[in-house]
């Protein structure tokens, strides 16, 4: 069964991302084409979470968590199975922004990557519970099935060389001789 996204159209995706908002972050494109809206996060929170996700799984020659829309996964699941983690996110994001302000007065998403790493190291140490949560959720949003809101266009599965869709069985009815 073909997925509705079809083959990876990174160019088209990037264009949409760049035109949808003046922001340099891809986050405003949580819903590509449909304009930005979030189910749980404020736009500012989503931007922070998106930037955190990207540090947890950064882009190299393969897309990172931002392009995979891990933040969209988290936002969606915070209205579903992860409702119980809403407070943890609200408070955790505030802590991240607090730590970011102490480093040059900018919001986290606008810090240089090295400064972002400093902030996250601090959060990992001082707010280990929240960091473990967002780390696990980023991994789920990146490596999990796109049906949950992340892993856009199956970027992580392509990275691992998994055929798409990785659902149905293969090698039917091959049994040992005799």
């Amino acid at each position: 069964m073909p997925r509705k996204n079809g083959p990876l159209k990174r160019r088209g995706f990037l264009e949409a991302a760049l035109t949808a908002a003046a922001s340099s972050s891809l986050v405003s494109c949580g819903r590509a084409g449909g304009g930005a809206y979030w189910r749980f996060f404020t736009a500012a929170e989503a931007r922070t979470v998106d930037a955190i996700c990207e540090r947890i799984i950064p882009a190299d020659d393969c897309p990172g968590a931002s392009e995979a829309a891990a933040v969209n996964f988290i936002d969606l699941q915070l209205t579903r199975h992860y409702k119980k983690h809403r407070d943890a996110y609200r408070q955790g994001i505030a802590k991240v922004e607090e730590a970011a302000r102490e480093r040059g007065g900018k919001v986290f998403a606008e810090l240089a990557p090295e400064q972002q790493l400093e902030v996250l190291a601090e959060i990992e140490e001082k707010h280990a519970g929240f960091f473990a949560l967002i780390r696990a959720h980023t991994m789920q949003g990146y490596y999990g099935d796109p049906r949950h809101g992340g892993n856009r266009e199956e970027v992580s599965w392509r990275m691992l060389g998994l055929p798409s869709p990785p659902v149905r069985g293969r090698v039917p009815y091959e049994t040992k001789a005799g």
Partner: peptide
Amino acid sequence: LPYQFLDYAPAYVPPWGPAHKE
């Protein structure tokens, strides 16, 4: 499956960041 696989990572690999992804 991919997410399940992360559980097998050794202690010498950082739990996140570029080295983990790699």
